[in-house]
Nucleic acid binder design. Structure first.
Length: 571
RNA sequence: GGGCCUGUAGCUCAAUUGGUUAGAGCAGAGCGCUCAUAACGCUUUGGUUGGGGGUUCGAGUCCCUCCGGGCCUACCA
C-alpha cells in the first residue's frame, strides 16, 4: 500500500468558481484521490480557500462587511459547493487559519536566517482617497503608446505594451476613480529566488515525466532574460499574515502582511495541521505526510492546478521549501491543465458568462457535470464546453450506455426471476469473451488513471460499459429464457455482478451514481476487481437486489436551449 | 515585442514520440434485436492532418515560412 498526498490548487475566496476553475484542479484531483483510495492506498487529499490579497479586501468592502467576516461566509459557500460536487477533501482549510499564520511566519524566519530574504526600498503608488497602496493593475489611465484610455498600470490591454504605472497619462485609481495618487517610498521583503536558481533548475530537470506544460513554463521563468528574479513577498495591506520573523517581530515591517502567493502554498502544509488539530490529534499525524524526517519519505506528493498556477508551484513554493533547509516534502508530480472555454469564448466571472458551480448544481446533479468535465478535461490544449456536446455526452454515455444497462438488466431479472440473483446454469463462450474483454480493458483503465490521463481513462471506462451491452446482445438472455432458462439465469447473474463491478470502477468519476448502483445491488462490497472473474461472483445466487430509479435522466432539447440562453452572460 | 502551447472527419478528441492503408465517440446512412431510459448490437459514409516549401527510404509527427487560436510575460490571484 502506497501513501499518496494530493493537493488541489486552492481556489480564491472571492466569489463562486466556474466550471473551468473546477475542472482545472479540484475535480481531477478528486478523481485521482478517489481512485487511489479505491485501490486501497492511503490518501491525504487537501484543499483550502486562498483568502488574502487585494481582491478579497475589495470584495468585502463592496459587500459592506469586515474582510474576516466576508471570508468566513465565502468559505462556507465554497465548502457547501465542494460538498455538492462530491469533492472528497480530507480537509478543506483556510489560508487565513492560525496554523497557516504560524507556519508562514516560520518559513519567513528560516529563509531570513539562511540569508535568502532581502529588504528592498521601492516606490509605489498610494491612493489617498482609497487609503491604500495600489497594485499596478489597479491603476488605470491613458496608454502613452496607443492612447487607449483604460490601460492598466501593468499592461495596456489594447496594444499589449507592458507599462509602469508612472507611464500612464492621467492615472486614476481603478477602485475609486480618484486621481489623488502619490508615489510613496515603502520597504518590502524579497525572496532571493535567484540564489536558488541552480538548485531549482536541477530539480526541474530531474522531472522528465512531468507534463510539457508544467516544465516548459518553469524553464521559461528560470532561464528567460536575466533568469529567475527575486520576488517581493510582502504587501502593504491589512488582511493577511502579519510579517514576523518566526515568532519575533520584524523591525520596519510592522504594518505589512505577506504576499498572498507566499502564504497560499504554505497552506497546503498548514491545512494538514488544521486537519489533525480539528480532530484533536497529535502533530505527528500530519507530519508523517509532510516531514521526510518524520515518516513522509515514502509519500508520493501530487499537485493539480491550472496552467496559470504553474510558476508558483514549480519555483516560488519549492524555493520556500528548499530555502528553509528543513526536510519538508517536495512535490513529486505536477499535473497541470489548460483552460476550459465556454461556447466559443471564455468563461467570464465579471460578465457572468458560462456556468458557475452553484448554477450547475441547481440544474443537474454533480455526476452529470463530473462526467462531462473529466471526460473532456483540457489536458493537451484549451477545450470547449458547448451545450450540444454536454447534452449528447450525458445522454449517450450516462443514460444510454451505463444507465440503460443497469435498467435493462435489473428489470429483466425482476420480470423473469424476481429480485434476487438467479441460480443455475454455467458460463459459456459469451461469458468467457466478456471476461477477457474486461481483463484487457481494466488494466488499460488502471494505467491511464495512474498516469493521470483523465480523458483516456474516461474513454476506456466508457468502453467497459459498452462491453456490457455487447455481452447482453450476444448472450440474449431474453431469447435463451424461452428454451434454456438456466442459461439465461447464468447470464443475468453475471450481468448483475457487472453492475457492481461498474459501480466500483466508475466511482471515481460518478460517485453518487456508483453509490446508488451499489445500494440497488444491496451490497457494501467496494473491493477493487483485481481478479475480474472472482469479482463477477461477488453477488452469489439468491442475493437480493432492487431495481433502482432511473440512474441518469436525459437532457431534452428544450432544456438545452433554455440553459444556453440563460448562461450566455450578464448573470 | 518575447517565450511556450495549439490547428487532424460536420462536432469533441486519439495516433505507441519518424514506421504499413491516420483511428474512436457523437451526428448521418443501412441492417438486426425487442430485455431496457425510442434504449442496445452490427455494418457503413466521411480526412490533400490550416496553407506553402524542405529533410528522409518513409512526415500528422522533424526543420523553415505564412495564416488562425490560446496561455504566460514576474504587483490580479
Amino acid at each position: 500500500m502506497a501513501r499518496i498526498l494530493i493537493t488541489s490548487a486552492i481556489p480564491y475566496i472571492n466569489g463562486i468558481k466556474h466550471l473551468g476553475n473546477l475542472v482545472g484542479s479540484q475535480l481531477p484531483a478528486d478523481l485521482y484521490a478517489r481512485y487511489m483510495r479505491g485501490r486501497g492506498h492511503e490518501v491525504l487529499f487537501l484543499c483550502a480557500t486562498d483568502e488574502h490579497g487585494t481582491p478579497a479586501e475589495l470584495a468585502a468592502a463592496k459587500a459592506g462587511k469586515p474582510v474576516a467576516e466576508y471570508c468566513a461566509e465565502m468559505w462556507e459557500v465554497q465548502k457547501e459547493l465542494s460538498d455538492g460536487f462530491a469533492l472528497s477533501f480530507d480537509k478543506f482549510g483556510r489560508s487565513s487559519s492560525p496554523q497557516n499564520h504560524a507556519l508562514t511566519q516560520h518559513f519567513a524566519g528560516r529563509l531570513a536566517d539562511a540569508g535568502l530574504i532581502e529588504e528592498v526600498a521601492e516606490s509605489q503608488v498610494y491612493s489617498n482617497a482609497d487609503g491604500r497602496f495600489l497594485p499596478d493593475r489597479y491603476i488605470e489611465g491613458t496608454c502613452p503608446n496607443c492612447g487607449y484610455e483604460r490601460a492598466r498600470g501593468d499592461q495596456c490591454e489594447n496594444c499589449t505594451k507592458q507599462l509602469d504605472p508612472t507611464d500612464l497619462i492621467n492615472p486614476r485609481s481603478a477602485i475609486s476613480g480618484s486621481t489623488d495618487l502619490v508615489v510613496r517610498e515603502t520597504k518590502h521583503l524579497y525572496l532571493r529566488q535567484s540564489a536558488l536558481k541552480d538548485q531549482l533548475a536541477e530539480w526541474i530537470d530531474s522531472k522528465t515525466d512531468w507534463p510539457i506544460l508544467t516544465t516548459s513554463i518553469a524553464k521559461k521563468w528560470l532561464f528567460d532574460g536575466d533568469g529567475l528574479q527575486d520576488r517581493g513577498i510582502t504587501r502593504d495591506l491589512d488582511w493577511g499574515v502579519p510579517v514576523k520573523r518566526g515568532s519575533e517581530p520584524w523591525p520596519g515591517m510592522e504594518d505589512k502582511v505577506f504576499y498572498v502567493w507566499f502564504d497560499a502554498p504554505i497552506e497546503y502544509i498548514a491545512c494538514a495541521k488544521e486537519w489533525t488539530d480539528a480532530a484533536g490529534r497529535p502533530d505527528a499525524d500530519w507530519e508523517r505526510w509532510w516531514r521526510t524526517d518524520k515518516g513522509a519519505d515514502d509519500v508520493r506528493y501530487v499537485q493539480f492546478m491550472g496552467k496559470d498556477n504553474v510558476p508558483f508551484h514549480t519555483l516560488s513554493f519549492p524555493a520556500t521549501i528548499i530555502g528553509s533547509s528543513e526536510p519538508w516534502k517536495l512535490v513529486d508530480y505536477i499535473k497541470s491543465f489548460n483552460f476550459l472555454n465556454y461556447d466559443g469564448g471564455q468563461f467570464s466571472t465579471s460578465q457572468g458568462r458560462g456556468v458557475f458551480m452553484d448554477q450547475a448544481l441547481d440544474i443537474l446533479p454533480a455526476d452529470y457535470w463530473r462526467w462531462w468535465l473529466l471526460s473532456h478535461a483540457p489536458e493537451n490544449s484549451d477545450s470547449e464546453f458547448t451545450w450540444e456536446n454536454f447534452q449528447s455526452s450525458v445522454n449517450k454515455d450516462l443514460a444510454d450506455v451505463l444507465g440503460n444497462f443497469v435498467s435493462r438488466v435489473t428489470k429483466f431479472c425482476r420480470s423473469r426471476f424476481g429480485e434476487a440473483v438467479p441460480s443455475g446454469g454455467a458460463f459459456g463462450p459469451d461469458e468467457q469473451a466478456l471476461i477477457e474483454r474486461l481483463q484487457t480493458g481494466l488494466p488499460a483503465y488502471e494505467a491511464h488513471m495512474e498516469a493521470i490521463e483523465v480523458r483516456k481513462a474516461a474513454a476506456e471506462l466508457r468502453g467497459l460499459w459498452v462491453a456490457g451491452n455487447e455481452y447482453l446482445q450476444s448472450a440474449a438472455p431474453w431469447a435463451a429464457f424461452k428454451e434454456d432458462p438456466e442459461r439465461a439465469a447464468a447470464s443475468v447473474r453475471l450481468a448483475l455482478n457487472l453492475i457492481r463491478f461498474y459501480a466500483v470502477i466508475s466511482a471515481p468519476f460518478i460517485p453518487d451514481a456508483a453509490a446508488r448502483m451499489l445500494s440497488a445491488m444491496n451490497t457494501l462490497d467496494m473491493e477493487w476487481p483485481d481478479d475480474v472473474s472472482e469479482s463477477l461472483a461477488a453477488l452469489p445466487a439468491g442475493h437480493d437486489f432492487t431495481v433502482p430509479d432511473v440512474l441518469f435522466r436525459k437532457i431534452t432539447d428544450e432544456e438545452r436551449e433554455e440553459w444556453q440562453s440563460r448562461f450566455a452572460g450578464q448573470r
